[in-house]
Amino acid sequence: MAGHRIYGMSFGSIYPLYLTKLERKDHTRAELDQVITWLTGYDEAGLAEAIADGRTLEAFFADAPAINPNASLITGVICGLRVEEIEDPLMQQIRYMDKLVDEVARGKKMTSILRGSQVATA
């Protein structure tokens, strides 16, 4: 089965777009890294490596140390689709990440974004 073309995009090309979006709304790289590490389990070094090595989004999520078990609590609409109704697990994970970034950009409280999880700030 052929995957969606977004699966072949590099995480390193997507990350700066997320960062630009957040910086335009007066948010920081630390906030971006916090939501991505919460979702994927990557640490700071792993995230830097994923950005630098050109791995695809498919590989980024396949290599993720641990998708957060509370990720299923992420709900809402992104790109016209309800994230909780997306059937393809990889596409759902990508859209979870998009949704988290959107919530940071909108200024939602971090405890709410992280679905009540306690995560140390960077």
Rank of each mutant, 00 (worst) to 15 (best):
T75W: 04
I94M: 09
G3I: 13
A105H: 12
Q34L: 15
G116Y: 07
A48L: 05
E84W: 13
L57Q: 02
I6D: 03
S112A: 01
I113R: 10
A122D: 04
M91Y: 12
G12T: 08
D33Y: 01
K99D: 11
D53M: 01
M91S: 07
T111G: 09
R55F: 10
G8F: 07
D26T: 11
K99Y: 03
Q93L: 10
V83N: 13
I78M: 08
A48I: 06
I113V: 11
S72T: 14
D43T: 06
E87M: 15
A120M: 08
E23M: 15
K108D: 06
I14G: 01
G107C: 03
A2L: 13
T28Q: 03
Q93G: 09
Q34W: 06
G41F: 09
S10M: 03
G54Q: 06
G80Q: 09
S112K: 00
T28L: 14
T75D: 08
A62H: 05
T111L: 02
L32T: 06
I74D: 05
D98S: 02
Q92S: 09
S13P: 00
I94Q: 05
G107M: 04
A52K: 04
E87S: 15
Q93E: 12
A122Q: 02
Q118W: 03
L17G: 13
E87R: 15
Q92H: 12
I6G: 00
A59N: 03
M1N: 04
P69W: 10
R82F: 13
L73A: 11
E23G: 02
M1G: 14
Q118H: 11
A50S: 13
K99H: 12
L32D: 02
I78V: 14
T111W: 02
I14L: 13
M91I: 13
A122W: 05
P65H: 01
D88V: 15
R82A: 10
A66S: 13
R24G: 00
K109E: 00
E44T: 14
L47M: 13
A66W: 06
S13F: 07
I78P: 05
R24W: 03
I113H: 11
F11L: 08
E31K: 11
S117A: 13
G12L: 05
L73N: 15
